[in-house]
Design a protein around this nucleic acid. Structure first.
Length: 790
DNA sequence: GCTTAGGTTTTG
């Protein structure tokens, strides 16, 4: 078997390689030497399409990256494979596979000057007695390598054309804010169609007509104000205006347009570039839109519908039924009750799809929506239980025959004017999460009331639910609109204590607990970011959060030590080395920790990195679950100095206590990796690595007054007081704003003492002995800033 | 490779 697949079992190849073979390093390959008993090992980083030579011989060229040469400038070599072996290899080899090539001939590489690879290439064929052993790279690893390469490569530089610079007959990339859209619908041709009108800072509008046979490859726009990035859209002139139309290779990303929400692209494309620069563009468009476009507030609820209007409804599908050829019935609910009697469309029981019990139980909360004509096909395909946004539903008032009572009808008329149509929202959509939670609370209330109430009483319960629901859109609105947001009260947990005057507290012995009513005269530090510290719960020490420069310095120092190739690709991680494309040609080594080999998701993967900069590490944290910076020693990988974070997850750097940590071998991570679905919790990682984790904490000094006296109380808070995790505030502008707003409300700058708001909170007193002097201190506890609306 | 639609409410 000249081409053989190997498995690695406990670090050894299975079947074992012939014992006479010796491994040869890339740098020892020189023309004219004898390589009969040598083999070369490398990772496939590129394979060209299989071809035939002039004489009909099969031919395959692949590129291997050596794994023994992490310092060398040239780290890859071309392998030319001839005859049947080329055919065999083409069938099994993929990027990321480890290849062992034995019985090769060495020849001068004619392309070395252009491709920058080794000056020689290896030639192999069955006739020459060569053998190739391939160790398959698990698919997930292959996927990770590609993700990794994409993140750290110099990404192709896309140029984006402003909407006022579009020219007829060009294919361009562009950004825009969605001013109007038709959700994808079935066209009269072969494809789905979606019409999208965009606008940007140039105030110029562009209507794009997008076609695709694949519903998924059209942009995932859910509301006006979303932001899109289109690649390779063709510009044409139509009726004297520029028009966009899908061209081959069209791709799109869609973002929520709300200022302050995470910039996460919605896309069906697995391979897309999205870097800091793109994030900045989206944020700029969001800010521009917020002050230049009027984007409507929260969507309507069934409890808010009026007859004779058009509205968009976010709802869940409970039942569906065919009515006739040109109309289709959708039974939906959103947890609120329509204030008018609504029509019921009679259908045959056997035509009605949906859970009978649920349909009956929710009969007073569901409404019948009739979808016509072109919407029928899409309506038919909807899954019961899915979450929908139905655009431009028409409510019509009509009287029942022979009766005076009128009812409201819900029509989704034919055609796509005004964006009329149906969109399926993914479960991950924030509005769906919100709706789901609400629906669950309604169902719960419903099932509880079912036991004790008659059906007549049930109806009145629904009415009261509907009243409660009316407040929800306001809450939604205010979460993101800061000028209307205010926290004006401080709530406490223990309701049994009554208020104590500050004078009384100052005259009492410690330790004790009190509830107080006081004003916040002043607080320290005034620069709020200075209030964030790192705390060790074991030795109770506090320290400043190291700044980013310190981390960079440590990384630079570590990068001097090259990665030790002996430590690459073990039983529990796979390693890849990468040379940066810039002048410095730095080596970066990534060790992907294996867990369940079936897992395909970078976002669940932990990796260790050697030789990266902090910028590269942050890039990796955006795509992978955890990043641990490490360095090589002779025998093992180890953590860096504990002045550097031992782990990065999301936007948070996790530090360990220098006094209390006793770092254990990195190998201990493999025990976590062996779990079926590791959660990679920072605390668990810290534990197996022997790290005593430091926790981010807010430390502040509040000077409180109440007319009877004043006292200084310390705030020591991980999350509870501000409802903001201290760990996240340093990397999140939005949270910083929120904290500043909270403090401005508790202690408005420039306000006289009389005009300050009253706060209620808990404080406890305690004694600190310093030498022979005893002093009483006060600390705020069990207190949360309440959010409310002015 | 070509078509589909090309925003501006149905008339059930």
């Amino acid at each position: 078997m000249p081409v053989q697949l190997l498995k690695i079992i406990k670090g050894k190849s299975e079947p074992p390689l012939p014992s006479h073979l010796q491994r040869e390093d890339l740098k020892h390959l020189h023309a004219g030497l004898d390589y009969t008993n040598k083999y070369f090992q490398g990772v496939v980083i590129l394979s060209y399409p299989q071809t035939k030579l002039g004489d009909g011989t099969d031919f395959l060229k692949i590129v291997l990256q050596g794994t023994y040469n992490s310092c060398a400038r040239i780290d890859s070599i071309n392998i030319l494979i001839y005859g049947k072996m080329a055919d065999d290899c083409a069938k099994v080899i993929r990027n990321g596979d480890t290849c062992i090539v034995a019985g090769f001939k060495l020849a001068k590489s004619p392309t070395a000057r252009e491709d920058g690879r080794h000056g020689c290439h290896l030639e192999v064929s069955e006739e020459a007695g060569s053998a190739i052993y391939v160790r398959g790279c698990p698919f997930f690893f292959y996927f990770l390598i590609n993700s990794f390469i994409k993140i750290l490569s110099v990404a192709p530089k896309y140029v984006y054309t402003p909407l006022n610079h579009l020219k007829d007959g060009t294919v361009v990339n562009l950004y825009g804010i969605v001013k109007f859209f038709k959700p994808p619908y079935v066209s009269k041709g072969t494809d789905y169609c979606s019409v999208v009108t965009l606008v940007d800072q140039s105030q110029v509008k562009l209507t794009c007509t997008l076609f695709s046979g694949n519903l998924d490859s059209l942009p995932k726009i859910y509301k006006i104000g979303d932001i899109v990035r289109f690649h390779r859209i063709k510009i044409r002139e139509y009726n004297g205006q520029m028009q966009g139309i899908t061209s081959s290779g069209f791709a799109s990303l869609t973002f929520d347009g709300t200022v302050g929400t995470p910039v996460v692209p919605r896309t069906s494309s697995k391979a897309y570039t999205f870097m800091d620069e793109e994030e900045k563009t989206v944020e700029e468009l969001r800010i521009w839109a917020a002050s230049n476009l009027s984007i409507s507030g929260p969507a309507a609820k069934l409890s808010g519908v009026r007859p004779m209007l058009f509205f968009d409804l976010t709802c869940q599908l409970v039942g569906k039924a065919k009515v006739d050829g040109s109309s289709f019935l959708l039974k939906v609910w959103d947890g609120t009750k329509c204030p008018y009697p609504t029509w019921r469309i009679p259908v045959e029981a056997r035509d009605l799809e949906g859970e009978k019990i649920l349909l009956h139980r929710l009969r007073n909360l569901t409404v019948d929506i009739l979808a016509y004509d072109n919407h029928v096909q899409l309506a038919k395909s909807l899954k019961i239980g899915s979450f929908l946004r139905i655009y431009s539903i028409h409510t019509k008032q009509a009287s029942d025959k022979n009766e005076d009572v009128s009812h409201v009808e819900f029509h989704l008329h034919g055609g796509t004017c005004y964006g009329r149509g149906i969109g399926v929202l993914p479960e991950s959509h924030p509005d769906v999460k919100e709706l789901k939670t609400f629906l669950e609370s309604v169902e719960l209330a419903d099932s509880q009331s079912m036991d004790s109430m008659s059906s007549l009483e049930l109806d009145s319960t629904y009415n009261s639910i509907a009243v409660a629901v009316l407040h929800i859109p306001n809450m939604l609105f205010n979460r993101y609109v800061w000028p209307f947001f205010c926290c004006f009260a401080v709530l406490t947990d223990h309701q049994d204590l009554s208020n104590t005057e500050l004078k009384t507290i100052r005259n009492s012995r410690a330790p004790q607990q009190y509830r107080i009513r006081a004003k916040l005269k002043t607080f320290k530090p005034q620069k709020l970011y200075q209030s964030v510290k790192l705390h060790c719960s074991k030795c109770n020490s506090l320290q400043e959060v190291p700044n980013g420069d310190a981390f960079d310095l440590i990384l630079q120092e570590c990068a001097v030590t090259p990665s030790n190739p002996e430590l690459h690709s073990t039983s529990w991680y796979e390693s890849v080395t990468w040379t940066t494309q810039d002048q410095k040609q730095r080596k970066i080594t990534i060790h992907f920790v294996k867990h369940d080999e079936m897992l395909l998701y970078p976002e669940d993967t932990l990796l260790m990195i050697e030789g990266g900069t902090s910028k590269e590490i942050w890039k990796l944290t955006r795509r992978f679950k955890c990043v641990i910076p490490v360095r090589s020693t002779e025998n093992d990988l180890e953590l860096l100095d504990l002045s550097a974070p031992f782990l990065l997850q999301g936007k948070v750097k996790y530090y360990g206590c220098k006094q209390c940590s006793t770092p254990k071998p990195i190998k201990n991570l493999s025990s976590l990796a062996a779990e079926p679905r590791p959660s990679w919790e920072p605390t668990e990682i810290a534990q197996v690595l022997g790290i005593e984790p430091l926790q981010y904490v807010f430390i502040m000094k509040f000077t409180l007054v109440d007319g009877t006296g004043a006292l200084n109380a310390y705030l020591f808070d991980y999350e509870k007081f501000f409802q903001i995790p201290a760990s996240e505030i340093l990397s999140n502008n939005f949270l910083q704003q929120k904290m500043q707003m909270t403090m401005n409300t508790l202690c408005p700058p420039g306000r006289k003492l009389d005009d300050l708001p009253w706060l209620e909170c808990f404080i406890k007193s305690y004694n600190i002995t310093d030498g022979n002097k005893q002093q009483v201190y006060y600390q705020i506890f069990d207190t949360t800033v309440a959010e409310d609306v002015v």
